[in-house]
Design a protein around this nucleic acid. Structure first.
Length: 446
RNA sequence: CGGGCUAUAGCGCAGUCUGGUAGCGCGUUCGUCUGGGGGACGAGAGGUCGCAGGUUCGAAUCCUGCUAGCCCGACCA
């Protein structure tokens, strides 16, 4: 993409309403604009990041054997009356009446709808296990939206629902989700810690939240620093292997890690030596639940088991806040000049800065780099504006592309361009072809 | 929902107390010079002063009502 043909309305000054760094940077980098309280338009740059995150989530869900679908944002109140949550959910649920006077709602979550779909189509235990998910906009009419997309009223969320014949099988689904979530966050470059949590209005017995440590987080957390060393890395995972998934859950949930809701100071001291005790702020980016037959019983979602008996299915639900993750990533990866995207989620893989627009050698070198990077799938953003070097650098630093190729007459005389890491600020001078090859290596596997 | 605050050009703000030609910085447009970290000079464009009503010869400014947004708290992916 050429910057002169893109839509990137960056701001030099901080908008007054933005208090925390991710909100400020998303506004300044032209990623979002507020439409009303807690509701945002996603401008092209922000939309690209959102899509990248969504793709990672899809890939990891599908890898775990979960099946994508799409449910509507608007739902009928009838199903919610059936589960008893129409009244229980309270004013946080946005209620709407259609022209016929029917009660509708903008879905804050989808347990009822998915359970309805399931019970109308699945009859036999032979169709289980089944995990369906979708990524869809949700609306929760928060009392006080804030922090930009981290705490919006409208938000984009992956929510999935597993249906299993018995508790053991549903617990495997729970463990499998934990593993796939760990992998998802790891791919985004994030360290997300599963913590024992409260189940809240969704209800259930077993639940973990995934938290990313950040000073601006809304939750207070307590954990054993040893958990920070855990990594899935490249290990082969068989999502059908119950023992392996259970072992990974064990590995990640053995070290003490709890939110303030479930924190037990005495237990914390008993289990964790003082030098490894940590407390911090953190951002919740996902949660998994096992809730057994809480919805299947009232909504009569049953299957026939191998003995010919009708039994309610065991369910769980699992969510990843995709739009919130954009904010969480920025909270985790930024400096005083702007955002620093991990390679796996960056909106463009490399920025090309032409230091002297209009200089025939510089222009030609940039055009050729632009063509070749594009052809190599290394999606570049070419700053071809008539701006001075400083302004171009400032823009690149702000929007946070991990790599930058700087092209100027001075270097071109020696036949080199400069490849710079946004993260470290370190540069190396390379021939253009070598810079492209180097970027190919840096992005291999992504 | 309790407490605090804000609303004036795309963004950041002054002007409101004490009513009288709507301003500044950044951005933006055109031109010239510049050219390796938000450059300089010159010339422009851009505003129903959140909305409605009232007081007044005259309202961004005073009065009344409303709306929207932000911050702290309780609540939440």
């Amino acid at each position: 993409m050429r910057l002169t043909r893109y839509f990137l309305p960056v701001l030099k000054e901080n908008p007054a309403e933005a208090q925390i760094v991710s909100h400020r940077l998303m506004l300044r980098a032209g990623m979002i604009r507020q439409a009303s309280a807690g509701i945002y338009s996603w401008l092209p740059l922000g939309f690209k990041v959102l899509r990248n995150l969504e793709n990672i989530v899809h890939e990891e869900q599908i890898r775990a054997g979960h099946i994508p679908m799409l449910m509507p944002t608007l739902q009928s109140a009838d199903l919610w009356r059936e589960s008893g949550r129409y009244d229980a959910y309270g004013p946080e649920m946005l209620r709407i009446t259609d022209r016929h006077g029917r009660d509708m709602l903008y879905g804050p979550t989808n347990e009822e709808l998915i359970t309805d779909i399931f019970r109308n189509s699945v009859r036999s235990y032979k169709d289980l296990p089944l995990t369906l998910y979708h990524i869809q906009w949700k609306f929760r009419d928060e009392i006080r939206p804030r922090f930009g997309v981290m705490r919006g009223r409208e938000f984009y969320m992956k929510d999935g629902y597993n249906f299993d014949i018995d508790r053991d099988s549903a617990i495997h689904a729970y463990n499998r989700h934990m593993v796939s979530y760990l992998r998802t966050y790891e791919r985004m470059g994030l360290k997300a810690i599963p913590m024992r949590a409260d189940s809240g209005p969704i209800g259930g017995d077993d639940t973990h939240e995934f938290l990313v440590l950040a000073d601006t987080g809304e939750s207070e957390v307590f954990y054993d620093s040893a958990i920070l060393d855990l990594k899935l890395g490249e290990r082969a995972i068989d999502y059908d292997d119950r023992a392996q998934c259970a072992a990974i859950r064990e590995e990640w949930t053995t070290p003490y890690a709890r939110t303030d809701e479930t924190h037990d100071e005495a237990l914390f001291h008993q289990q964790v030596p003082e030098e490894r005790r940590r407390s911090s702020r953190a951002i919740e980016v996902g949660q998994i639940f096992y809730f057994g037959t809480k919805y299947s019983e009232p909504m009569k979602a049953t299957v026939v088991n191998d003995k010919g008996e009708h039994v309610p299915v065991h369910m769980g639900s699992h969510g990843i806040g995709v739009s919130r993750l954009v904010g969480a990533l920025i909270e985790a990866f930024h400096d005083d000049r702007g955002i620093i995207w991990p390679e796996s989620v960056t909106p463009f893989r490399v920025g090309i800065v032409n230091l002297k627009q209009g200089d025939s050698a510089a222009d030609a070198a940039c055009e050729s780099l632009y063509r070749e990077l594009t052809a190599a799938g290394l999606e570049p953003l070419y700053d071809d504006r008539e701006e001075r070097a400083g302004a171009k650098f400032a823009t690149m630093d702000l929007i946070g592309l991990p790599w930058r190729i700087t092209v100027g007459p001075r270097g071109l005389k020696a036949g080199v361009v400069e490849l710079t890491s946004r993260k470290t600020g370190q540069s190396e001078e390379l021939k253009p072809a070598d810079a492209i090859a180097r970027l190919g290596e840096l992005y291999s596997g992504l």
